[in-house]
Nucleic acid binder design. Structure first.
Lengths: 118, 118
DNA sequence: CGGTTATATTCCTGTCAAGGAATGCAATGC
DNA sequence: GCATTGCATTCCTTGACAGGAATATAACCG
């Protein structure tokens, strides 16, 4: 039984509950970034960015590698599979009740959108 | 323009960030329940159940109908489509990353692998 | 009407997370 | 070595809930 990225569900939800952290995650979807880049892009102070990244790391959503003096952070989407699994039992439900809405929301373009912001 | 289930994303994430509320949502997946039933099933005090249900209502996740003196709460899964939509861009990613992870694990047999983090 | 059941709300208190400022620390370059 | 860059951590303050107890409200029943 490998429990590599199997952080507690609670940590994952808590990490994603914060809009800033969701923004960071969305940013990292477009590629690895240093702390400074993340701070600037998400309009966070440097310490704030550091702290948010720590939470994301502890939730298993982000990995870090050192590169000279910089710390390059990379998204690890694996824990999000837990969200997907949580969602699974509900997915059929809204298909039944809200067909049109579901279809509209399912439109997922292949290109990253310019900062979904949320 | 009806704004029934179209609560802000933030309210949805915040509502689901709480484990008790996720439990309530999961319970309601099995059918409508009165406040008292929910409180007992989720081991909440009655006021606590009431308050959590209020949050869920305001996030659009739950609807209520009055029935005699009881208030029967029903799950409205529609807002969860927003979660699904949020998740969509990542869904393809974790397939890749899990593959990579699996390959790494397979490449490292019984050699006492120091737990990377945990 | 008075009592009872079912739920909502208020008040209070403790806890915890977030943000800012300042500082610590590590790696780098000269 | 020393200054600099890049980031982490601490300290502190503030605000946002969460839980419990007590109370308010509402619908029902006799």
């Amino acid at each position: 039984m490998r429990h590599i990225g199997a952080m507690s569900d609670a940590a994952l939800w808590a990490a994603l509950a914060d809009p800033h952290r969701r923004a960071v995650v969305a940013l990292l979807r477009t590629g690895p970034r240093t702390v400074g880049e993340i701070a600037r892009a998400c309009e966070l102070s440097q310490p704030s960015a550091s702290k948010h990244l720590k939470v994301l790391r502890e939730a298993g959503l982000v990995r870090v590698r050192q590169e000279a003096q910089r710390r390059v952070h990379t998204l690890d989407p694996a824990p999000l599979a837990a969200l997907d699994a949580w969602l699974a039992p509900y997915r059929k439900l809204w298909g039944e009740s809200l067909d049109a809405l579901g279809r509209r929301l399912d439109a997922a373009p292949d290109t990253a959108e310019p900062t979904p912001k949320d």
